[in-house]
Design a binder for these strands. Structure first.
Length: 240
DNA sequence: ACATTAAGCGATA
DNA sequence: TATCGCTTAATGT
């Protein structure tokens, strides 16, 4: 893809990073130093930050918005692996011993992203708390994807979709009057790509759940009104 | 218990 | 107006 020159938004303030776990133990001076090495860029919704297989030239920190991590199968279908909320590192290929990105990262909503050249990775690792925090997030994501594999193999579609939706509102949910809403635009197609089913099945499930008062949805918006009911649904392993 | 195909409708740009 | 997101029914495995 043809990326324009990296724009530097209004000068970055230290407070942007002081409360982000990978940097929270660092002095103000060190954070200033790190910010001066960073490029910041705003991405509109649906833009690729990097693509699977590309040379991993930089690593990233999501300041605002949401990142969707996707992979393409042999037959050309998209699989959504996970979503990344603000405050997390991503594209950290070196942390898993790779020199190319293992998946494509696309913005699920308008996002603000910091990035640094991968050559700086080793020096970042020496900063207090950085290594432990990044390996914590790597571990968490591995565990998540592991759970997904087990789900795919053992659970039926309704359970998978229920659990995927619960994961979304737990990780990226925003409180609204009627319940908890997924904090970025999400379509039936997206949910189907997270759960290895079709948008039609997702549509039918959401309609049924809406009639039961468990969710409320309009185009690109999903509100979970009764999380506990969904949890019960998601735990039900076999029926009849 | 699911996927696929098809048809149609309102929202959006 | 054309495209997109979504719903539903019918049919297939």
């Amino acid at each position: 893809m043809i990326d324009g020159p990296t724009k530097t938004l209004p000068r970055l303030d230290e407070s942007l990073l002081t409360h982000m776990p990978p940097f929270s133990r660092l002095s103000r001076e060190r954070i200033r130093q790190i910010l001066d090495l960073a490029s910041s860029r705003r991405y509109p919704e649906g833009q690729a930050v990097f693509e699977e297989g590309a040379e991993a030239g930089r690593f990233f920190m999501l300041l605002d918005g949401y990142i969707r991590v996707i992979r393409i199968t042999e037959t050309g279908e998209q699989i959504i692996a996970l979503h990344i909320p603000p405050g997390q590192l991503f594209g950290i290929a070196k942390a898993i011993g790779r020199s190319s990105y293992p998946a494509t990262a696309v913005t699920a909503s308008e996002s603000i992203v910091l990035s640094w050249p991968m050559e700086l990775w080793d020096s970042f690792l020496s900063y207090d708390g950085f290594a432990t925090e990044t390996y914590k997030t790597v571990g968490t994501r591995m565990g998540e994807m592991n759970n997904r594999i087990v789900e795919m193999a053992t659970q039926q579609v309704e359970q998978r979709v229920a659990n995927a939706l619960l994961r979304l509102v737990n990780q990226t949910g925003r409180k609204v009057e009627e319940g908890i809403e997924v904090d970025f635009p999400i379509t039936r197609q997206d949910l189907s790509e997270m759960t290895a089913t079709t948008l039609h099945t997702v549509s039918r499930l959401l309609s049924a759940w809406e009639k039961a008062g468990m969710v409320k949805s309009t185009r690109k918006h999903i509100i979970v009104c009764d999380p506990h009911a969904l949890v019960v649904l998601g735990h039900h392993s076999s029926k009849h």
